[in-house]
Design a protein around this nucleic acid. Structure first.
Length: 582
DNA sequence: AATGAGTTGGTCCG
DNA sequence: CGGACCAACTCATT
C-alpha cells in the first residue's frame, strides 16, 4: 500500500513542541508532508492542491473560533469531495473547548468555577508532547495552477500596505522555503512594536520566567502594575499563546512544577499564573458554546442588553450594519474617536491607548482602565466598538479572550459589579505617583509636575508655561505645537450618569436574545437621554455644574427619575416572569 | 430561602 | 496600609 501523503495546515500552532495535530500527522508515517501556512485563500487553493498533489490526508489543529469553524467546515467538505481524509486535533487550550462545553451541559462557561468543575470532569491537563526530532521532506510540489491571492476583497490588510505584496505569489513563499512571509514581503512598513515572535524566542522566554521561582510561584495578577514598562510587570507570553508559538500546556506544567516545589506562600488561581490560563480556557469554552453570537449582544442570550450612546455596527436582526439601536448622544462618536486616537485629555487613558497603537500590547489592568472608560465608566459606548479596535491593534489578540474581557468590563456578562468603576485619574496614581508611564507615552506632558500629570487641565497657566505645554483644544482638530487637549468631559459627571444608566439597564433586565431587543420595542422601557442625564447627581470638578438649578427643580427631577426607576423595576419583574414561563 | 464569595474600585478614616 | 463603607449584582453552596 502506498504511504500517506499529508498536507499539514499551520494556523493556530506555529510550533513544533507539544502539537497533538502535528504528532497525529507524523503518526501516519507519511511519505511526504507539506506544510501550508496560508490563512484565507483556502477556498480556492485547497481544491487545486488536492488535485495537483493528490494528498491522502489533511491535518490541522482544531480552531473553535466562530469564523474558523465555518472556514474549516468548508475545507473539510472540499477535502471529502476530493477523497482526502481530514484529521483534526485539539491543542490550543488546556482542555478541548468542545469537551469543556459538553461536560458543562452544552452551556458556555461563564465563571472560573464552572470552568474548573468542567475541567475536573475531563481530567488532568494533558502532558506536553516533545518536539519531533525530524520532519519528512516536503518532496515535489507541482504548482502549475493559479497561485495569486484569489479574492482581493478578503484582503483586510490591503489598506495598510505601502509596498507591493509578494507574499502570496508562490505556495512556498518568495524563497521557496516555506518560511512565514516577512512584513516586507507582505508589503508592510517595518514593525513599530519591540515585541518579537517565534517558537525559539517563546521557549527562551518561558525558561527565563521559570528561572525566577519566586516570581513564578507567587504571581498575583491584581498586584502587577499596569504602569510598569521596560520591563513590564507581567510575563508578556500572551502573543506566543495566540500564535501557538508556545504551548499553553507546556506553560501550565512547568509553572505547576515550580508552584509545587515552592510550597507554602505560593499564589493560587484565579490570581496566580495558572489562574491566567484558566481564564483563557473559560473564554474559549464560552465562545465554543455560543459561536458567532458570543461576539455580539444581538441574539446572545448570555449578554445583557444596554442601550449604549454609540451603538454597535451590528443590527440586532442580521448581526451587521448600523441600526437604530441606541439612545442618541451625538458627542459619543467624537468621544470614541478621541479614545481611539489617545487624545481624550485624560493622560492615563491617552498613554495606554498610544502604547497600544504603537506596540500592540498593554497590561491587562491597562486594558481594564481604557475598556471601562469607553463603556460603562465614561463614554457609554458599545463594548463591541472597543473590541473591534483591540482586535485590530493587539498582537496577542485572541477573539474569545478579547470579546470575553470586553463583556466583563462592560458588565454585560461574566462580571456584574458595575458600581466598581475605574477612575482615569486615581487608578493610575495608585501605581505610578510620578506619572513616569504618562511621560513615556504622552511626551507633551513630560515636564509637567507630578501634581498635575494626571489632571493637566488643573494646571495654572504659569505651570503650563514652565512645563512647555498648553492645555487646549479637542485633540482631533489640528493640534497646536506643544499643546495637550482639554479633557473631553467631566469624568465625575459622566461616571454618575453612566452608573445610574447601568442601574436602570440592570433593572430592565433585557438580554441580547430578548424579543424586545430584536424587534426594537426595548426603547419604551428606557428613559430618553435627557431624562437619563439628570438621574445622576454629582459634584462637578470643573465648576460648571450642568442644568440642575434650584431645590425645586431638583426635587421634580428626582421625582421623575424615581418614577422611571419604578417602571424599570416593574419591567424587570415582568421579564423574570416571562423567563420562568419559557 | 439564606448566606457568602466574587482575580484586579474609590473614598474616607484611623 | 487596613478596614468600613458605598449601593447592591449573580452565582454557588448550604
Amino acid at each position: 500500500m502506498a504511504k500517506p501523503r499529508v498536507i499539514y495546515w499551520f494556523r493556530t500552532d506555529l510550533r513544533l513542541h507539544d502539537s497533538p495535530a502535528l504528532q497525529a500527522a507524523l503518526d501516519l508515517e507519511p511519505d511526504v508532508l507539506w506544510p501550508i501556512f496560508t490563512w484565507d485563500p483556502h477556498y480556492t487553493l485547497f481544491p487545486k492542491l488536492f488535485k495537483a498533489w493528490k494528498p491522502t490526508h489533511l491535518v490541522f489543529e482544531k480552531d473553535t473560533d466562530a469564523y474558523a469553524r465555518s472556514r474549516d467546515e468548508a475545507v473539510a467538505k472540499a477535502a471529502q469531495e476530493a477523497g482526502v481524509k481530514v484529521i483534526v486535533r485539539s491543542g490550543r487550550t488546556l482542555w478541548d473547548s468542545d469537551g469543556i462545553v459538553e461536560k458543562h451541559g452544552g452551556k458556555p462557561t461563564m465563571s472560573i468555577t464552572q470552568l474548573q468543575a468542567a475541567g475536573k470532569k475531563i481530567g488532568p491537563v494533558a502532558r506536553p508532547l516533545p518536539a519531533p526530532e525530524s520532519l519528512p521532506d516536503p518532496g515535489d510540489m507541482p504548482v502549475d495552477f493559479e497561485q495569486h491571492f484569489p479574492d482581493k476583497s478578503r484582503d483586510f490588510n490591503a489598506g495598510y500596505r505601502s509596498e507591493k505584496d509578494t507574499g502570496y505569489n508562490a505556495i512556498a513563499g518568495p524563497n521557496g522555503d516555506f518560511a512565514i512571509e516577512t512584513l516586507e514581503e507582505l508589503g508592510f512598513s517595518p514593525a513599530t512594536t519591540p515585541h518579537r515572535g517565534g517558537e525559539s524566542i517563546a521557549l527562551k522566554a518561558l525558561d527565563e520566567l521559570i528561572k525566577n521561582k519566586r516570581y513564578t510561584a507567587t504571581f498575583e495578577k491584581p498586584k502587577t502594575s499596569p504602569a510598569q514598562f521596560e520591563p513590564q510587570s507581567t510575563t508578556l507570553l500572551s502573543p506566543f499563546f495566540h500564535f501557538g508559538a508556545l504551548s499553553v500546556r507546556l506553560f501550565y506544567w512547568r509553572v505547576h512544577e515550580v508552584v509545587e516545589s515552592f510550597g507554602k506562600g505560593a499564589s493560587t488561581p484565579p490570581e496566580s499564573l495558572i489562574g491566567q490560563v484558566l481564564f483563557r480556557d473559560m473564554y474559549f469554552a464560552a465562545q465554543a458554546a455560543l459561536g458567532q453570537s458570543f461576539a455580539q449582544t444581538a441574539t446572545n442570550a448570555y449578554c445583557r442588553f444596554i442601550p449604549w450612546h454609540l451603538p454597535s455596527k451590528r443590527n440586532p436582526e442580521t448581526g451587521f450594519t448600523t441600526g437604530d439601536y441606541h439612545i442618541d448622544k451625538p458627542e459619543a462618536e467624537e468621544w470614541f474617536q478621541r479614545w481611539k486616537a489617545g487624545v481624550t485629555g485624560f493622560p492615563w487613558i491617552d498613554a495606554l491607548m498610544r502604547q497600544l497603537k504603537q506596540e500592540g500590547w498593554i497590561h491587562h489592568l491597562g486594558r481594564h482602565s481604557v475598556a471601562c472608560f469607553l463603556t460603562r465608566g465614561g463614554c457609554y459606548v458599545d463594548w463591541e466598538r472597543g473590541a473591534e479596535v483591540f482586535e485590530e491593534w493587539l498582537i496577542d489578540h485572541e477573539p474569545a479572550c478579547n470579546i470575553g474581557n470586553w463583556q466583563w468590563l462592560a458588565c454585560v456578562a461574566f462580571f456584574t459589579q458595575y458600581f466598581r468603576c475605574y477612575s482615569p485619574i486615581t487608578f493610575g496614581q495608585k501605581w505610578d505617583k510620578n506619572g513616569d508611564f504618562i511621560r513615556r507615552w504622552v511626551p507633551e506632558l513630560k515636564k509637567v509636575k507630578a501634581k498635575y500629570i494626571y489632571e493637566p487641565w488643573k494646571m495654572p497657566l504659569l505651570d503650563q508655561k514652565q512645563a512647555g505645554v498648553r492645555v487646549t483644544g479637542d485633540g482631533l482638530s489640528e493640534r497646536q505645537e506643544g499643546s495637550y487637549p482639554k479633557p473631553m468631559f467631566d469624568f465625575n459627571e459622566r461616571r454618575s450618569i453612566c452608573l445610574s444608566a447601568m442601574k436602570n439597564a440592570y433593572a430592565v433586565g433585557l438580554h441580547g436574545n430578548d424579543e424586545k431587543v430584536l424587534d426594537g420595542t426595548w426603547r419604551s422601557l428606557f428613559p430618553s437621554p435627557d431624562e437619563a442625564e439628570v438621574m445622576g447627581e454629582y459634584e462637578s470638578d470643573y465648576g460648571e455644574n450642568a442644568d440642575i438649578g434650584d431645590e425645586e427643580d431638583r426635587e421634580k427631577l428626582d421625582g421623575d427619575s424615581a418614577g422611571i426607576k419604578r417602571a424599570a423595576r416593574k419591567n424587570s419583574t415582568d421579564a423574570k416572569i416571562k423567563k420562568q414561563k419559557t
